[in-house]
Structures are given as C-alpha cells and as structure tokens.
C-alpha cells in the first residue's frame, strides 16, 4: 500500500513539474516585448522595465532562467505582477479563501445531489422516479453556470427575496453560488453513478441474491456497496471543472477570489499572475487526484493490484 501511495504521489509530482514547466515554456515562447508592453501599459518607465528584465533574468540563457524559475516556485515565489508589482503568492494568499470555500461547498452539493440523483435514476422505483431523476441530471449537465446563475439570482433574490445574490461575505452569501456551481457538476456525477449502479445491479451475484429470496432492501444495499465504489474516483476529477467554474461563478455573483484575479490579469495581460494561478491549479489538481486514488486504493485493494 505504501509503495502504491508513493508511486501515485511520485507520478503526481512528475505531472505537476511538467505542468509548471509547460507554464514556463509558454511564457518564454511569448515575444519578449510582450512583457515590456504590459509594464509600459501599467505606467512603468524604461528604467523600471530594464530593471525588471534584469530581475527576471530575461536576458540570461534559457536553461538558467528555467533553473531559477523552478527554484523560485519551490520556495513558493511565483514572481510579481507586472501591473501592480505585488507578489503573485501574496495575491493568491489574499484570494484563496473565498475560492476554496466556493469550490469546496460546490463539491459538497455536487456529491450529495449527484449521488442521490444517480442512485435514483439507476435503481429508483417506480419508473417515473427514474425518469425524473434522469431528467434533472440531464438538465444539470446541459445548463451552464452562466445561465443558471442568472436564473437563480432572479428567482431567489429578486422575486422570492430569500437569499442574497451578490457580493457580501459570510455563509448566507455562499449558498446561491455554491448551489449553482454544484448543480452543474452534479450532472456528471449523477451520470457516472447511474451507470455504475446499473452495472452493479446487472451483476450475477445480485441476480443470485434475488433468486435466493433475499429481501429487496438487502439487495439494494449490496448494489449500492458495489456501485458507489467507482464514484469516489470520479469525484476528485470534478474538482478540475469546479476550479474552472469558480471563475464564472465569482464574476456573476460579484464574489472576490482567484477567478476574479485571473480575469483581471487576462485583461491586462499580466502574464506572471496568469502563469502563477494556472500552475497553482494544476499542482493542486494533480495532488488531490493522487490523494483520491490512494484513498480509493485503501477502500478497494483490487485497484492497486491492477496498476
């Protein structure tokens, strides 16, 4: 088991290193004066630009820049914003909390709703329940956040006036954005769950159990045990979508967070900030997935045998 965990995390670190290198490569692939242009737009003088070029080592050989960059990243130094001069790591620290709360909350909603809908559409009775659950899951999959967000604000804030729609801080303000982002994600979790449950229900031993006259509730129990196992692996994969989804959710609900920082950085073409944010999300995402795989391996020993 420990060997498997080490191997899995080793692979994740390799992937993270590649992702960070990719981010570096793309930034260097930019024409050099793109950085100068961004700084000039932000009002930097020629002397300041030259000083920054020197500090960034832009005139050094590429391998040297790369080594320096990796060393910086390892120390948690992601460079400075070309526009404001603020350290990128500080910008991330200031905005990580709200984004983590949003993504975490949305994951919660997505798992609860997704598994629920998935089970119902897999083995729900009567057929009407199945169809209803399936319908809701399909709807969730086909309505993007930027559409449900508008509807949810209109319905719950403007018409019903039960929940605050935009801005603000605290738990109450989190409910709508979390539900909107979680709803869309729930669609794909429901889909995987339903498929897995159906496959489990079709297994021989379930048929045998039924034939042997086991009470239906016990049979269901067995189906769920087998069917829900693969779902745990999918949940972690959804985090990637959630990280992307926070960008639009934060914009619609006027929340602060990394998504807003990213959109602002894209507008001003503040490359170090974009690079830092994207690299950070890649590292987070691959480590969390490794963690999920190891957890999954703990539950189901077959997994680590397979690999």
């Amino acid at each position: 088991m420990i060997a498997y965990a080490l191997q899995r995390f080793g692979a994740a670190i390799l992937v993270a290193w590649l992702a960070v290198s990719l981010a570096f490569g793309v930034l260097r692939w930019l024409p050099g004066d793109a950085l100068d242009a961004t700084m000039a737009r932000a009002g930097a003088s020629d002397a300041e630009i030259a000083a920054r070029r020197l500090a960034l080592g832009l005139d050094d050989p590429v391998w040297q820049q790369y080594a320096l960059y990796l060393a910086d990243v390892l120390r948690g130094d992601l460079g400075e914003s070309l526009v404001s001069g603020q350290p990128v790591s500080e910008m991330i620290a200031q905005n990580l909390g709200p984004t983590a709360a949003l993504a975490g909350g949305a994951l919660l909603v997505a798992v609860a709703l997704g598994v629920g809908l998935g089970v119902l559409s897999g083995v729900g009775r009567p057929a009407g329940v199945r169809y209803a659950a399936e319908g809701i899951a399909s709807l969730a999959l086909s309505t993007p956040v930027y559409w449900t967000g508008t509807l949810a604000i209109y319905l719950f804030t403007t018409v019903l006036d039960v929940l605050p729609g935009v801005g603000g801080r605290g738990v109450r303000y989190l409910i709508l954005p979390v539900c909107v982002l979680g709803f869309h994600t729930a669609g794909s979790i429901a889909r995987v769950t339903a498929g897995s449950i159906r496959a489990a229900a079709a297994m021989d031993f379930i048929r045998t159990a039924r034939a042997k006259g086991l009470p239906e509730s016990d049979v269901l129990d067995h189906i769920l045990r087998v069917g829900l196992l693969p779902v745990t692996a999918v949940v972690a994969l959804q985090l990637g979508f959630l990280l992307g989804g926070t960008v639009i959710t934060e914009m619609i609900f006027a929340r602060r967070g990394l998504g807003k920082v990213l959109l602002a950085a894209i507008d001003t073409r503040d490359y170090p900030v974009i690079q830092g944010l994207v690299a950070l999300s890649a590292v987070t995402y691959s480590l969390i997935n490794a963690l999920a795989d190891v957890l999954y391996g703990l539950i189901d020993p077959r997994v680590r045998m397979d690999r």
Binding site: V15, A16, A19, L22, V26, G240, F241, G244, V247, A282
Partner: peptide, 14 residues
C-alpha cells in the same frame, strides 16, 4: 497528464 492537470476552462482562458 500534464496538460490534463490544468483545469480545462482555466487553460482555455490562459
């Protein structure tokens, strides 16, 4: 895998 590690929408935005 390295590419997949970037959340798709974030990669597209970048």
């Amino acid at each position: 895998d390295a590419l997949l590690a970037f959340p798709a929408l974030l990669l597209a935005l970048a």
